[in-house]
């Protein structure tokens, strides 16, 4: 088992290494560089005439005159040694300070969404598969099609519209006005959890739709297995039988796709956050892309990917624990 874990950890590091190169490429893609944008932002409208040599000075100051591989090494080196993601020019402070609290809120949102997704989809899908062609089963089919067709941000817009027209208040934000700038306290956490419900429901929307279909399909497969008939032939009570045999195996594909779900949630997060004005990483990501604040964008992209890779690793280990058929040695 420990060998298996070490192997997977190593694979995770390799993946992260390649990802960091890709992220760095994306950071370098926009035309012009940090010095151009820094100079433009700092001096535009001030009447000072910026010359090419001024910009060159800024480049030297930030070490931007070095070749790309050297810049990559200092960037990744800063992250690995000091957890330093560089400077944000839009906020004129370190990326770490800009990201700060938003990381915690993003993770809170992620785990709330994951828990909601699994708590809703697994029991309903199992029930629908057992009671095939029942109202619940047809409801599930309709819901899963809707969940795939109606993108989260449109659902968020619709909820926003309903909350504004019907209730006269917005569902956006992560805190009540009283708590936005208040220091952290139990009351603030409670307020946040309350505000997490709608965003995490919106984010869980399509992941749930997908899992409903997957779990139902696996459960239907498992229900027809001979091992279930064999267990029934042993005289096991029906509900015990369903839980012990097919349902237990229907969990496996869910576990194996945790990383995929996290990817999906993070993929949809920025736009949903924008619509619901949630102060977390996704919204900041859009903003930094629009401002071409690439160090912030790169940092966020790295963080989001790190969690996806980490959850992938976790799901691999969990699956190995759950399914004895998985060989712990090799591949």
């Amino acid at each position: 088992m420990s060998r298996f874990i070490i192997q997977r950890l190593f694979g995770m590091l390799v993946t992260l290494f390649f990802v960091s190169i890709m992220v760095f490429t994306i950071m370098e893609l926009p035309p012009g560089d940090y010095a151009d944008r820094y100079a433009f932002r700092k001096y535009s409208g001030t009447g000072i005439n910026v010359t090419e040599s001024d910009i060159q000075n800024i480049r030297v100051e930030f070490g931007l005159d070095r070749p790309a591989p050297a810049r990559y090494l200092s960037w990744i080196g800063g992250i690995l040694t000091d957890f330093d993601f560089g400077q944000s020019f839009a906020f004129e402070t370190s990326v770490n300070r800009v990201v700060g609290e938003r990381l915690v809120l993003t993770l809170a949102l992620l785990y709330a969404t994951l828990i909601l997704t699994y708590a809703i989809s697994i029991p309903i899908a199992i029930y629908a598969a057992v009671r095939r062609h029942s109202a619940v089963d047809y409801g599930l089919t309709i819901m899963s099609y809707l969940g795939l067709a109606l993108p989260n941000f449109l659902l968020a817009l619709i909820l926003l519209y309903i909350s504004v027209t019907v209730f006269g208040s917005s569902v956006g934000g992560l805190f009540s006005p009283d708590y936005v700038d208040a220091p952290w306290s139990f009351a603030k956490v409670g307020d946040m959890l309350l505000h997490l419900i709608v965003p995490s429901l919106v984010l869980a929307w399509s992941a749930t739709a997908l899992q409903l279909q997957t779990v139902r399909a696996t459960m239907l497969d498992e229900l027809n297995k001979l091992s279930v008939t064999a267990a029934r032939a042993r005289g096991l009570p029906e509900w015990k039988l369903l839980l012990k045999y097919p349902a237990r195996l229907a969990i496996n594909p869910v576990v194996s796709t945790i990383g995929f779900d996290v990817n999906r949630i993070f993929s949809e997060l920025p736009i949903v956050a924008l619509v619901l004005s949630l102060p977390e990483l996704g919204e900041l990501l859009i903003q930094s892309y629009l401002d071409l604040d690439m160090y912030v964008a790169g940092a966020i992209l790295m963080m989001l990917t790190f969690f996806i890779v980490f959850m992938n690793f976790l799901s691999d280990v969990l699956l190995a624990v759950l399914d004895p058929r998985i060989k712990l040695e090799g591949g």
């Binding site: 091992s227 032939a233 029906e238 004895p324 058929r325």
Partner: peptide
């Protein structure tokens, strides 16, 4: 699904199948 039937299944009458692999749950 009755209790009486469950007592018969496995108790009075037992069954073995064609596919020994498939008749066991793998987990």
């Amino acid at each position: 699904d009755s209790k009486a039937m469950r007592k018969i299944r496995g108790g009075s009458i037992a069954m073995i199948f064609q596919e020994p692999m498939a008749s066991f749950s793998p987990v």
